[in-house]
Computed example of a mutant assay.
Amino acid sequence: MLTGKQKRFLRSKAHHLDPIFQVGKGGTNENMYGQIRDALEARELIKVSVLQNCEEDKDTVAENLSKRSGAELVQVIGNTIVLYKESKEKKTIELPS
């Protein structure tokens, strides 16, 4: 579980990132969860964009993505979701305590 201080730190890190996944009309699926897990292992911090034609609510999508990928939900702002998961192999982000 992330503290408020850690979430603020991660939000500042994520500010300059571009979304690398888009959730559209089809919603989320197992293939997407796997790809997000792989991306989180490589990058630790990612953004996911929820398109306007997505049939699911963005908060529901964010909750599903964080649960199914084992990531921490950092923020949902607008139609963008920020996820964080500490990498086992390529740890680059040092969280404040």
Results as ranks from 00 to 15, higher is better:
L2S: 04
T3L: 13
G4N: 14
G4T: 08
G4S: 13
K5M: 14
K5A: 15
K5W: 06
Q6W: 13
Q6P: 11
Q6F: 09
K7F: 12
K7Y: 09
K7W: 06
R8I: 09
L10T: 02
L10F: 01
R11T: 14
R11C: 09
R11L: 02
K13I: 09
A14I: 09
H15K: 13
H16F: 03
H16L: 05
D18H: 02
D18M: 11
P19D: 07
V23R: 06
G24Q: 08
G24A: 10
K25F: 15
G26N: 06
T28K: 07
T28L: 07
E30I: 00
E30A: 03
M32P: 04
M32E: 01
M32I: 02
Y33R: 12
Y33V: 14
G34D: 12
Q35N: 05
I36P: 00
R37Q: 11
R37M: 07
A39H: 14
L40E: 07
E41L: 03
E41N: 05
E44L: 04
L45K: 10
L45I: 11
I46C: 11
I46M: 10
I46Y: 05
I46D: 02
V50I: 15
V50H: 05
L51W: 13
Q52G: 14
N53I: 13
C54H: 13
C54Y: 05
E55P: 08
E56H: 11
E56D: 09
E56Q: 11
K58H: 09
D59R: 14
T60I: 10
T60N: 11
V61E: 01
V61L: 15
A62M: 11
E63C: 04
E63H: 02
L65E: 01
L65M: 03
S66W: 01
S66T: 03
S66I: 01
K67F: 14
R68T: 00
R68W: 09
R68F: 10
S69R: 07
S69N: 15
S69F: 08
G70R: 06
G70H: 09
G70V: 03
E72F: 14
L73D: 03
Q75N: 15
Q75R: 15
Q75Y: 11
I77M: 04
T80H: 08
T80Q: 11
I81C: 09
V82N: 13
L83R: 03
L83Q: 06
Y84G: 01
K85Y: 01
K85R: 15
E86S: 07
S87T: 00
S87N: 01
S87A: 03
K88F: 12
E89L: 14
K90L: 09
K90H: 08
K91H: 12
K91W: 00
K91A: 12
K91G: 12
T92E: 06
L95N: 09
L95K: 10
L95P: 15
P96T: 13
P96D: 07
S97T: 07
S97N: 14
